[in-house]
Design a binder for these strands. Sequence first.
DNA 1: GAGGCTAATGACACCGGGTGCCACCGGGCA
DNA 2: TGCCCGGTGGCACCCGGTGTCATTAGCCTC
Lengths: 212, 212
Amino acid sequence: MGIGARGGHNACVTAIETTAPGLPAEGTRARVERAALDLFTLRGFEQVTTDEVADAAGISRRTFFRYFATKADAVWGDFAAHVARLEELLAATDPAQPVLASVCAAYVEVNDYAVAELPLLRERMLLILTEPALLAHSQLRFAEVDRVVARYVAGRSGAAATDLVPRLVAATTRAAATTAFEAWLADQRSALGTHLRQAFAELTAGFPGLLR
Amino acid sequence: MGIGARGGHNACVTAIETTAPGLPAEGTRARVERAALDLFTLRGFEQVTTDEVADAAGISRRTFFRYFATKADAVWGDFAAHVARLEELLAATDPAQPVLASVCAAYVEVNDYAVAELPLLRERMLLILTEPALLAHSQLRFAEVDRVVARYVAGRSGAAATDLVPRLVAATTRAAATTAFEAWLADQRSALGTHLRQAFAELTAGFPGLLR
DNA sequence: GAGGCTAATGACACCGGGTGCCACCGGGCA
DNA sequence: TGCCCGGTGGCACCCGGTGTCATTAGCCTC
């Protein structure tokens, strides 16, 4: 590799079934995600270059950035679908239930993962909440969630989505959910739903344990 | 400027009293902050290069990165002092007052700026909460605040700073404060303290307006 | 007052994330 | 066969950030 050059994914030793240029490229995205997650978990997000991720996935650096807008996006999976599902859950809530309870319930339900998915979720969230660069990036992703929640609260409470209370509910419930995730990551073998419910219970009750 | 070169702050046209190499450099940092704030506000954070900021401040790009670790840091002023003051306020709270109320009061007080400082604060927060790159970066700065608050709550409530409730209080009060800032930025000529108090009132009462 | 120390600076090369552009390759289709 | 088209790789480039080195000026000491 010459000086100043960038090394075009040459002779990728650990490559797993390299794809052809003109092919539909089935599963390439998933393969890149796996490679990225593995490398980031093993050596840390900042210590791994996009060149290495692309190489491990058997594609070029240029192609990596066609699948993911940024290096950080490779750890998020299909987050847009996650947000969309939350929006659907909110739209399908019982109007008889209080607004805040509906939001919390939707959060719990959208995060009710199958057992088989939990290791992957854990790996993702551990990276996102631990690596500074990913934590920073998360703000942009979570902002999409906030907008969805704020719109819902605004619709139910007859306010504008830009008003204080809808934004407040969105920001605080999301903060609570993130904190629950941290607690889940901290103690192995605990249920995510339990932490979420406990966090929302504290929040909606105004932290009754802190009256002193 | 040759191809591939970077142009060493050559003939800065708009320079304001360039400093000498071996001088104590009084007020250089403040001058760079002003230049950065002006340029970012005028043309957007991403559209301004660090070269341009350095040039406008009459220093080199390399020197810019000696004053600020990242481009984003140039908009935060002395945030560490802000956090330190919050910590002092928390340490000086009345033990008879409830924990949550003490946190909210400290937040209100640390954000009680003099009228003369408000335009600068507004400019800073507008950038931070509007520009995606700065919003992402803010997560790292606000995490320092969260740690301080969580430590305080843990100390008062006899829990560990890593327990759910202390983290939860830190995350949600900070989310509420940020939302209050957004509301303040949205309607010109309103008092920041009013929005903060209203947000904390909603939060600590469990959003009483959303019982339906 | 000469010489040495120190702190701030600027130039330069370099790394790595991200992008625009173009050439290429293969499959499907007329 | 010839054409179009989508996925790809290579390349040059921009820009944020860093390590290194030489330069400068103030200061301290002898």
